[in-house]
Nucleic acid binder design. Sequence first.
DNA 1: CTGAAAGCGCTTACAG
DNA 2: CTGAAAGCGCTTACAG
Lengths: 347, 347
Amino acid sequence: LVSINSKEIAKIAGVSRSTVSRVINNYKNVPEETKNKVLSVVEKYNYVPHEQARMLAGGKNKIIGLFMVDRKLYTVGKNVSMSNYFSLFLNRVIDEANKYGYYVLAYSITSPKDYKAIKQIFFNHTISGGIFIGQQYDDENLNEIIQGGYKVVMVDKEIEFESELVSKSFIINTDNTSGAYSAIKYLIELGHRKIAHISGHRNQLSTTQRIEGYKKALEEAGITYNRNLVLNGNFIQDGGYSATKKLLQKETPTAIFYANDSMAIGGLIALKELSIHVPQEMSVIGFDDIEIASYLDPALTTVKTGFAEMASIAVSNLITAIKEDSSFSAHYIVPAELIIRDSCAHL
Amino acid sequence: LVSINSKEIAKIAGVSRSTVSRVINNYKNVPEETKNKVLSVVEKYNYVPHEQARMLAGGKNKIIGLFMVDRKLYTVGKNVSMSNYFSLFLNRVIDEANKYGYYVLAYSITSPKDYKAIKQIFFNHTISGGIFIGQQYDDENLNEIIQGGYKVVMVDKEIEFESELVSKSFIINTDNTSGAYSAIKYLIELGHRKIAHISGHRNQLSTTQRIEGYKKALEEAGITYNRNLVLNGNFIQDGGYSATKKLLQKETPTAIFYANDSMAIGGLIALKELSIHVPQEMSVIGFDDIEIASYLDPALTTVKTGFAEMASIAVSNLITAIKEDSSFSAHYIVPAELIIRDSCAHL
DNA sequence: CTGAAAGCGCTTACAG
DNA sequence: CTGAAAGCGCTTACAG
């Protein structure tokens, strides 16, 4: 596992290491002849410059981190399976990063302790920037990363304009409010007036904004907001299942809007157990448009988040900021789109 | 973005850089007092050693690569979505690597050209080892990586005992043969005798082994192998869809065994279009047990590959080999398990 | 256009 | 137990 170095290449090619370096790095003022001479030796000996050495000598690190909060999908009464909620996002991040010649270090956050390790890999120069998705709260270590001048993109993060951190980072959100609004408006157009909502985690931006959109649509239609029709969920299947059961013990909505598809799946299972037919007796809408949504029975009407687009924006802006070492502060909102399938019916 | 270095820490703590290094690296012969003195300065100034410098000075790289061949899932007549086939595997690889203090560089192979870039990141020391999954053929660059002494794990790769490469790498496979065998045996027990098979890519190990298992079960039951009942597929949904349509133009099987779940999903769509009821008029079995399988209507009976277990084995062996710089050659077969759901019926 | 030299931030024999 | 020095493999002003 010992590879040839630039010193050897220089000797064989009959030039100095400086010249080898200049050829490798495509400097302008190297005559064709010298260039070809060096390149042929490089080729012959399969020489690849040592990345760590290059970085020490002033080069840029070409790795960005993708930090995904692990959202477990507990399959009710069956096995526990890992979430693939972010797989679309991950794939896009990889593709986009590769375009720029960058690589992606994928990390799954399973406990608050992980932030310490993450801080380490920023500070020890393993990565030159990172994207965080699925955060539920502010973490002191993450703050230190941003304060330290490292480039960070956050997806689904509240904008607090007074905060100094916000002015130093890049934030991308789905348009949760208008997404929820369009879902509820659609239900109202179908004749529903008693519409329940199972929400996400309390301390997450997407949760509050989806509730906001829900309220806004009701208000516009002159429907009084009924607190008893809104229950707390947790973005996983189990939560959707139990919240649905709890809801229907006391209330009789004709439609339920779940804050994400995983909970809607749990809800569909609960409804089946209660022999309530979807969509004839209950209309159901989710949020996210995860891959499973279109395979459900009935196929789930849902709100599609612009995950793929968010990934592209995140990566291109992050890498540009890293390359130019430019200041880095912006806020994008990506549209959400209602996807109508078969889980809602006219009242 | 300028961080403090060991020289400064040494000066402030009133020791030499050597001592700082010894403390950081937990050398034995450092008295408590010196240790605490240094550590308090380290703490105070938030000092984190420069990883690239450590590696240049002889340290080990703590990143492994995970290279996944991108298997696109074309949703018949709908949008094209990225595959999340490997998301379970990826998650496990990350978790397992983190346990050892390692990180995962995730890479999606979308074209044969990608192997050149992959070779670069091995040779330039960006990663110290890698796991390949979903390979369809041997690649010259990959061979060079293995010949170069780099540690590589391959999942779903044929063992050719005469090959020198095989003796230098680590191979993990699902027990495809017995998995397919148990699926067909189950169908035969339900009374089926005319069982079709839609296979995977021709040049992939899992394809040939699954066909083998299919044949073996038929043979054991005294059913003559009928070449017309076996059609080539490609592991994606579209292929399952069109192979099913093609198959049923000429043949009248009572059961179809698909080489993976994605193709089975395509098959279910084709059968629905042909108004053939599953499982009453046609029994269907898949392979893989992807997350969607249990959400289909009817829930898909399938063969579960030991993906999670393969990931653990791959990572722990890879990292051990990297750490000990030991020779690295083995062959694991992980059992596959028939998961009975609702897509098969008695004849 | 090109080479000698300094420097990136560590670790680790070596000497004491 | 600890420091001075060499070295890891590059890049990049500097000088010519």
